[in-house]
Design a protein around this nucleic acid. Sequence first.
DNA 1: CATTTGACTTAGCAGGATCGCT
DNA 2: AGCGATCCTGCTAAGTCAAATG
Length: 660
Amino acid sequence: MDQTIVAIRSRHVLLHFGSEHRDSSDKKHRDKDKERLKLKDGSSDKQKDKHKEKKKEERVGRGLCYFHIATVLSELNPLALEESQMPLFWHFAQPFWLLVLGCWFTSFHLCAFFIPFRWEEERYTDGVKWKFLEHKGPVFAPPYEPLPSNVKFYYDGKHMKLSPGAEEVATFFAKMLDHEYTTKDVFRKNFFKDWRKEMTSEEKSKLTDLNKCDFSEMSEYFKAQSEARKAMTKEEKLKIKAENERILQEYGFCVMDNHKERIANFRIEPPGLFRGRGDHPKMGMLKRRIRPEDIIINCSKDSNHPKPPPGTKWKEVRHDNKVTWLVSWTENIQGSIKYIMLNPSSRIKGEKDWQKYEMARRLKKCVDRIRAQYREDWKSKEMRIRQRAVALYFIDKLALRAGNEKEEGETADTVGCCSLRVEHLTLHQEMDGQEYVVEFDFLGKDSIRYYNKVPVEKRVFKNLQLFMEDKEPEDDLFDRLNTSILNKHLQELMDGLTAKVFRTYNASITLQQQLNELTTSEDNVPAKILSYNRANRAVAVLCNHQRAPPKTFEKSMQNLQTKIDAKKEQLADAKRELKMSKYLLEGRIEEQLMKLEVQATDREENKQIALGTSKLNYLDPRISVAWCKKLGVPIEKIYNKTQREKFAWAIDMAEKDYEF
DNA sequence: CATTTGACTTAGCAGGATCGCT
DNA sequence: AGCGATCCTGCTAAGTCAAATG
């Protein structure tokens, strides 16, 4: 039994383990385990008391709950704790038997229990997200290190020593010199304006023209630094790695309601020059350094509050358990709030993710009705209803985003469905032998171009003509519609329905259909994976998830082709030589050849498509898990380690017959 | 009611880490 | 072992959407 897990799986008890385990069915160990859940400074005593009160509340709720071994053992069944060292049985209020035999774990490895069961009400009512939250606060960006005196800055050909404040901002620019955008007017203008704000009055009067600034020595210095970093010895690199690990251990985790959880982004964003995506009017602006005085800490009252660095203060410490963030600050470019939150592997994120897919599955049940409804609405005598219906058709059919209005001049000019303008589509009565074709061409999120030619139904076409009548190109296509109106309508059609649910629904259902169509159990594993990637790709195309072709694409394709050719040769050789092992050898080479060819196809088809986004955000992971189980594909071939952590709930939950 | 704010998800990319070959 | 190719992770911008605000 050593190093193994004894777990009896009923349909409703699912266990998930870290990599090191220790028998904790022993009571002594159990107490130790409880100790280990605390952060360094500890807080479990207060917690324990609180938890007694909480027990009842936590048992009611609707949702997927997962617990640590300590939670399960100490909280869910205190009786069993006393009575038995061995398998614990307990009977929950409703017809679900939960059963746990034993478990191993150490303090450094999270051992998560996933216990999906039906609760009767909300786990926490009124939007309460947690009862206990303790963390160490953020890690700040390292302070600015002034340049050595031999690295000089020149203005109009003459050496000039900059004040530390001005120098720091100058280095930001110097580091970007190789980037194309430092040549852009808007970038330079914004940068120079913000740089001047950091200058002393003397510098301000001298430095009046960015074109006369020579950052080349700075730039060279940083390049040399990065070379030096690469050339470091193994020991030095190891030392840095160890230090990073130490920081991770200290600041990278928090305790939320008895779970030790990984924090997603515990490091504060360092200062630098803002680079928005696409044609952003604020590119080049100075993103200022965040100090403790800018930071709002969120934690529970009864926790050990994080301490600000010596000699500093937090802006505020609050105890808001209606939100999930641990730390926040206001960023100076857009004035928006940034947060430190938990890792996707955390309970709070996993639960939310699961809910998202459950919502999409609810849409599946009534999507026919909703489609019938919006088709009916194309004929409405009210313009606003027709617009709403056509927009919804696009969102459903093309998986467009909702398209909130944006403040003009504050961000890049991008649109989604509700914010489409007349200039973004062209109507073709007939095109390439098809009738009623709509040609879309606009920039969407992240200024990614959406280009598509879609045949639509006649009624949609006629409506579009109507909406576009007497309008200028820059006018809104749907002038009687916005996302708020649309979502209110959707809310009436189905509780909790919003525009983005259609993206999730259509993505997931597409994956499921494609997997069914493309894969057979007779295929070998590489062929199955090719099919999986193709199904994934169909979704990525639907959602318009693009990427820049990898810089090394052509070359890597060539290399692969070389390998294929070599393999073919090898196969021909083997066929010529009539040896005993002929068949075996041939078979093996053929298999290798096929593998390579599959790889080539896959890569070619994937040139400009990014699969990651849909995999991570739109595809119900249970579909993939079920597919793997059904076809005997190891889950590791589909999800890497991080992804398996994020989708642990699905991996444990979904059986091979799961249907989205 | 329109507008703003706040909290949260979704997004592509750069560069570091790891892999697999010679 | 060294090296290029590939994979993965961290980063942070840019969306969605509901609630707060005026």
